[in-house]
């Protein structure tokens, strides 16, 4: 006798069940990462305390994005011609046409040793 095909509801509930189980695993995984977080923060925290660092190294494109906490109040495109700034005026002010301020003085890039 041929076995009856699986009901659609069984398949659907199983799928949602698997997703819910994965969701639970996600929560457990996030919780289990606490040890890694402690190790990572310890290593970074020592540097921050020892060097007196004030900012995270996230955006290195310009001074005011590298050290937003230490930056001048207004600094549109001051370091990089395409460096987006924090102000709405940045979307209206066209960046300079030359690729970089350094390109004018050092057109030939020397080879790194």
């Amino acid at each position: 006798m041929a076995s009856s095909p699986m009901r659609k509801s069984t398949l659907c509930l199983s799928l949602i069940g698997v997703q819910a189980a994965l969701f639970l695993v996600m929560l457990l995984h996030a919780n289990a990462q606490k040890d890694r977080a402690i190790h990572q923060r310890l290593s970074s925290g020592i540097l921050v305390r020892r060097l007196g660092l004030t900012d995270l190294c996230l955006f290195t494109e310009a001074r005011y994005t590298r050290h937003p906490a230490m930056a001048d109040r207004h600094a549109a495109f001051q370091d990089h011609p395409m460096g987006l700034d924090h102000f709405p005026s940045g979307s209206l002010l066209a960046p300079p046409t030359f690729p970089s301020p350094h390109a004018r003085t050092h057109p030939a890039v020397p080879e790194h040793p």
Binding site: G45, V48, R49, G52, T54, D55, L56, L58, M70, A71
Partner: peptide
């Protein structure tokens, strides 16, 4: 990122004093 910033920068100096000349650091 917000949590990392909060957890790490709590170790930052209590205060940083900059000198301003003509409105710039």
């Amino acid at each position: 990122l917000k949590r990392e910033a909060r957890e790490l920068l709590i170790q930052a100096p209590d205060m940083v004093v900059q000198r301003m000349v003509a409105g710039r650091h």
